[in-house]
């Protein structure tokens, strides 16, 4: 068991006053047998009016509305989690076998998938390594080159991307080979940025793998949300009125609790 304290704060500053601002956040860790929430609080500024709910994937949502003029928006999610072996027992929702908007195969996904020789006698876990190796061979980690709308196909064509793109390509290839896979957002111990990895389903259990680091996502991964792809688990979304430049600052700290 690993006990981690996390503190995640996002500050968006607007160059002009904005109003009629609606937001939707998935910034609260998800409870499961692999992850117990010991302590969790979230505050929102400038107006801490929020509503709790759960989306159809079971992720915790915080939503709210600020009607009046304001020029910054801040949310801070803090707490302590206990991490156990990253295995989640759950009956398979077949949804995760099928392609989704951002993982839709065109030419590149079938091409890379068909080029991968999966071991016939080996376990799914071995095959996951083979797939991740192939994904890493076709993508270079380059930050800032892709956006939240980039599809797996586009990232492959580019040959570059960030954790989101690694996860999308990996999920698309898994699904191509009949392995159910889903997208996960969260934090990793010792890293100052939010991260994305995948979960794959085998024998009634979800296991986690981190294609960006090309390793199983076992120790120090705090999970916030999962879905078919990024679009199901965006950490913060918002719409507002007013013309303004936005400046985004993220402060994330994940440390072992003494």
């Amino acid at each position: 068991m690993l006990r981690l304290r996390y503190s995640y704060r996002t500050v968006i500053t607007f160059s002009e006053n904005i109003f009629s601002h609606h937001f939707l956040l998935r910034c609260i860790p998800r409870e499961s047998e692999a992850q117990k929430i010991v302590e969790s609080i979230c505050t929102i500024l400038p107006d801490d009016k929020k509503t709790w709910s759960t989306d159809s994937f079971g992720n915790t949502l915080l939503t709210g509305y600020m009607g009046n003029f304001h020029n910054y928006f801040e949310f801070c999610s803090e707490g302590v989690v206990e991490l156990y072996d990253y295995k989640i027992q759950e009956k398979l929702n077949p949804l995760f076998l099928y392609s989704s908007k951002l993982t839709q195969p065109m030419n590149k996904i079938p091409e890379i998938s068909n080029g991968i020789k999966l071991s016939e006698n080996g376990s799914v876990h071995e095959n996951i390594f083979i797939i991740s190796n192939a994904v890493n061979a076709s993508l270079n980690y380059v930050s800032g080159i892709t956006s939240v709308h980039t599809t797996a196909e586009e990232a492959l064509a580019l040959g570059q991307g960030v954790c989101q793109d690694f996860a999308h390509v990996m999920i698309a290839v898994c699904r191509h080979h009949g392995i159910a896979a889903r997208y996960v957002t969260g934090f990793i111990q010792g890293e100052g940025f939010t991260h994305a990895w995948i979960e794959y389903h085998h024998g009634g259990v979800w296991y986690a793998f981190d294609p960006t680091h090309n390793r199983p996502a076992n120790d120090g991964y705090i999970k916030l949300a999962h879905g078919r792809d990024y679009s199901d688990c965006a950490i913060d979304k918002g719409v507002f009125k007013g013309l303004a430049q936005q400046k985004l600052e993220v402060f994330l700290k994940v440390e072992q609790e003494q």
Binding site: H22, L24, S53, L61, T63, Y65
Partner: peptide, 8 residues
């Protein structure tokens, strides 16, 4: 925005 929440 967030109509889906009210609906759900």
């Amino acid at each position: 925005p967030n109509l889906m929440r009210a609906y759900a």
